[in-house]
Design a protein around this nucleic acid. Structure first.
Lengths: 134, 134
DNA sequence: TTTTAAATGCAACCAAGTTGCATTTATGTT
DNA sequence: AACATAAATGCAACTTGGTTGCATTTAAAA
């Protein structure tokens, strides 16, 4: 899956292969962890305009190339890969020491009881702690 | 617990009983669900200044009168009541239809396996779905 | 009643994210 | 290869949540 080139990925998703998109996707493929807007802006410096960046983050997300993570920092982070359909078996780990966000698959789906009349569509979990590197 | 007056609550937490704080706390006691900044600003209109509001939200949170919720909307919401110490047995339900945020206690604590070397301090869960009213 | 630290209001600021619009570019068609 | 066209880009201006510095006001202890 990860061995596709950015060109191939864009093509498969039916997105036009522009300079900006290739640079952005290239960056995502290199980065192991979730990226904030400022991470991206910094990394792609003069190469990319603010609004173009946001518009591409949106289209990448819609195409299932990346997913958007709320790590409870107050802003969003973006990571390569699609969120699983049911949303039950994917969690995000936020290192309180280095702020890195890790995507992690859960072996057992979360089962949460909600009161009568409430219908659960999706469960999103943020685990805060300290990562292996810190 | 909920039958304390705002005056009593402020006194107990060692906070000065100012006009603004009484109005804000009064509002929180009336509101069943989590409030966003704009909810509060709207409700307390001319009564309260932006920076004063934020400063008081911070001190209320530190005093354990309210807790701050990240409902994945991109901004924070604030709700009456303290977050439990370990953070493991409290979840937030976000109604995708009316955007209301409900606090709910979990009967069984969430147990999540993290990879070797990772240390979990706290788990925060957002359940998205449709509430009983919708 | 006086004193003083804490709380308030105001203006100015910052960063994330959005929108409208004119220009440019990728791609499908001749 | 040249053309047409819809989609993508860049720019500026904007919105909103949230913060900061500072002078003024106020709660409450002495």
């Amino acid at each position: 899956m990860n061995r596709m080139s950015h060109e191939q990925i864009l093509e498969r998703k039916g997105l036009r292969k522009t300079k900006v998109r290739k640079a952005l996707l290239h960056h995502f493929l290199q980065m192991e962890h979730a990226q904030s807007y400022s991470d991206l802006q910094l990394a792609l410096k003069s190469e990319i305009d603010k609004s173009t960046l946001y518009r591409n983050l949106t289209s990448f997300e819609q195409a299932g190339i990346i997913h958007r993570i709320n790590d409870h920092s107050g802003t969003f982070k973006y990571a390569f890969g699609e969120l699983p359909k049911n949303g039950h078996d994917h969690a995000h780990f936020v290192c309180e020491s280095c702020d890195t966000v890790y995507c992690m698959e859960l072996s057992t789906p979360l089962e949460i009881n909600v009161p009568d009349g409430f219908k659960t569509n999706n469960v999103q979990t943020i685990i805060k702690g300290v990562c292996a590197k810190c």
